[in-house]
Design a protein around this nucleic acid. Structure first.
Lengths: 348, 348
DNA sequence: TTAGGATAGTTAATCGATTAACCTCTCGGA
DNA sequence: TCCGAGAGGTTAATCGATTAACTATCCTAA
């Protein structure tokens, strides 16, 4: 294989200067390049298999056609892939590539990561967290255009996109209400995360609107895992006036709730309806019966974040936008109407 | 914030030429820079907060300190994260960053992706597939240094790393053998993938070594999913001489096998021991009882691939290495000794 | 006749580093 | 006294594009 052709080679082949070649290929310089010349340059480039050296171009233009993706512990969550993919696809559509840095959340490390990206002249940065969080924008970001992904600031000074937890919660609760349930319990985690707060608050309002006391219908697990869900559900379902349906904080806890139901001889959905959040591919459709769950729109958020970033590259002074991405409900078989007399006896 | 300082600014502050400044900072040029001058330049750089412009440097040196990561449908698998993370960490350790491109496996698209990376002067490329595969290296790669990740070529012309399927299979089978099992069944998928072939072949040899006929102990599901595992296990466990233990193609199928066992009134591990492959975080530890499974070493493979690539950047003529990465067994509660008389009657 | 504008280019500076080639001391030995 | 060899630099070319500033020609309207 011979050397990669340079712009100068194309120019020579077309019998013009490099300036003309550059303008012809990039459609810049207004009307300065004639129809015919432009064609000549284009075919010469095609024949030589010319591809511009983006490093050289970047040095001059101070743009790299690359977007930095700073993820806070990307790898440890199964959602990361979808988020990256959404960002990736939107970027590629516009001729951009993603330069990835993963951090452990340590702020010094994050600063280093951002600096490493800036050294490489990235045009903008996506700051992603793997769970909906309220964060401070790292100081190192300086004046680099950026968008927060699955995260937002307290004061809204940066564009950001997070899931519409409230909407998603109302969505799955509506599944239950439509089926006839009013005594809807909630199994959540003690971990103080944004998702917990929003889902819990929305559920509270909902049951309160039916004149019920949320406190009587709530159980907390020690973590957002299957055992956490199991323990909480056992406590909740043994109460004298147990709920006819349960809204789980997430699919993993729902797995535990399924086990608790089995343990107590309650059949899903006939004796107990269940809805949840996250719609994890490896859980919700695999449980039996399939679990109705509100999906976290990671792909869409990734895509939106890149598009917003590209928009801001065009108009740097645009007002920051804080976007809520809808969480569509994946309807499966875990919901049915409540039993007329819901007080079937428990085994044990 | 004022303008980023350039090398010229550092040089001026230290009272030297840019050539000297460059050599002092990079420790190049042998003994031409005096001790004291070097120090002076270093402190000047630190004081100004100088960070080299890697684009300019890259233009001159033709190296970018970036590695291309070409993934074939990265996002759709939960393992992707670990693989990317492993590659990322090894790269970062050496001052490299990962430039990601995801493709749909289409070869024209892959070619475009590689070209997009080459335009940006990446120093090397990782070609990753999301399931162990035998592939052809895309022509577009040309003479760019590359390493295959979770993939290999038929002829071994490129360095590659794949999981040691044979070793992992022997590992989980040993768990069963040690517990006293000989009649070990296998639930696999009909999909013709490399992993199926190797796990099946290894298991076949193993049971044949005990004088058993593999055909009598094998059941295939229509896909490597929970329902596929369920159907296959139902057929296998209803045979007159059913196995006392089952080795599952993967964790998802194992989920189905768990359900089948429950359906048939067989308790795990007392009536039936189960081992599997993949050790998926969301499945193996969450099942009850916990599933003993051979882990796919995605993190290690990602790390190994980058290190191998960096090595090849240093010595381009080194012989390609084909590495098998061990699959450690995660031991959980799904294995026990076989019942003395394993023919407890089935319900139904 | 001439200024002015449009058209279709070219020349040369520039982005910010690296590095080959060159320069200037100083010192030791012949 | 003069030569040669380090030591410790500096100057200027270079990587491959983009683009501001300039040139040349032709046409048109005052």
């Amino acid at each position: 294989m011979t050397k990669q052709p340079r712009l100068a080679d194309v120019a020579k082949a077309a019998g013009v200067s490099t300036a003309t070649a550059s303008m012809a290929l990039n459609d810049t310089g207004g009307s300065r390049i004639g129809r015919e010349t432009r064609e000549r340059v284009r075919t010469a480039a095609a024949e030589l298999g010319y591809r511009p050296n983006t490093v050289a171009r970047g040095l001059r233009t101070r743009r790299s056609q690359m977007i930095g993706f700073v993820g806070d512990d990307v790898a440890t969550t199964p959602f990361a892939g979808q988020m990256i993919r959404g960002a990736h696809d939107a970027a590629r559509e516009a001729g951009f590539l993603l330069l990835m840095v993963d951090t452990t959340g340590d702020s010094a490390e994050t600063g280093e990561a951002i600096a490493a990206l800036q050294e490489r002249q990235i045009d903008g940065v996506l700051l992603a967290t793997m769970y909906h969080q309220v964060i401070e924008v790292p100081e190192a970001i300086g004046s680099t255009p950026h968008v927060l992904l699955d995260a937002r600031t307290a004061h809204g000074s940066s564009s950001s996109v997070v899931p519409d937890e409230r909407g998603g919660t109302l969505g799955v609760l509506a599944e239950l209400t439509t089926a006839g349930h009013t005594r809807i319990g909630h199994v959540t985690t003690v971990e103080q995360v944004e998702a917990r707060r929003l889902r819990l608050a929305t559920w509270s309002e909902h049951v309160a609107a039916y004149g019920l006391d949320p406190a009587e219908l709530l159980a907390e697990g020690t973590g957002s895992t299957s055992p956490g869900g199991f323990a909480a559900a056992m406590r909740l379902l043994r109460r004298p006036d147990r709920p006819t349906a349960i809204f789980c904080f997430n699919d993993r806890m729902a797995m535990g709730v399924y086990r608790a139901a089995a343990e107590l001889g309650l059949s899903i959905p006939d004796d107990l309806s269940i809805v949840s959040y996250d719609d994890q591919e490896l859980i919700a459709p695999e449980l039996v019966p399939g679990l109705t769950s509100a999906a976290l729109p990671h792909y869409d958020m990734g895509q939106w974040a890149v598009r917003e970033l590209l928009r801001r590259l065009g108009e740097p002074d645009a007002e920051p936008v804080r976007h809520l991405m809808p969480c569509p409900v994946s309807r499966r078989e875990s919901v049915a109407g409540p039993r007329p007399f819901h007080s079937i006896p428990l085994e044990t």
